[in-house]
Amino acid sequence: MNSVPKKLQYSKTHEWVRKDDDILTVGITDHAQTMLGDLVYVELPEPESSLESGQECAVVESVKAAADIYSPVSGEVIEINEALFETPQLINDDPYGKGWLFRVRPYENDSPHLLNSEQYSKQVASEAH
């Protein structure tokens, strides 16, 4: 079974979100990286760029397939994980840690609609059938 840490929140499109003070860190879930297989390329948003909630803002590609990453919130990109350009495999090895994609500071009044770990696990289970 793929891991779904309880302390994180999740989107229906298989991103995870961690909230530290007012900053959100975004990555893809263990389930998503397993489905994609070995990752070999990433495109990340420009630092300081502005994202709309639900906007396609990054791409992760495995040998097998490309997947769009959607911003869970409207906000400003404050940091991207540049280590991924050199080593996309970090996403496979440590999806909730070293494989994070970008950090975003949400605009005021925008709180994302996200799933808790239990809801996300249920969604993954339902997709398998």
Binding site: G37, D38, V40, V63, K64, Q89, N92
Partner: peptide, 20 residues
């Protein structure tokens, strides 16, 4: 193995990492 359909056969796509 991660098994996938290939031309009607249930075949191994990889056993962990296709790049390895």
């Amino acid at each position: 193995a991660k098994i996938v359909d290939f031309a009607g056969w249930e075949m191994p796509l990889h056993y962990g990492s296709q790049v390895q």
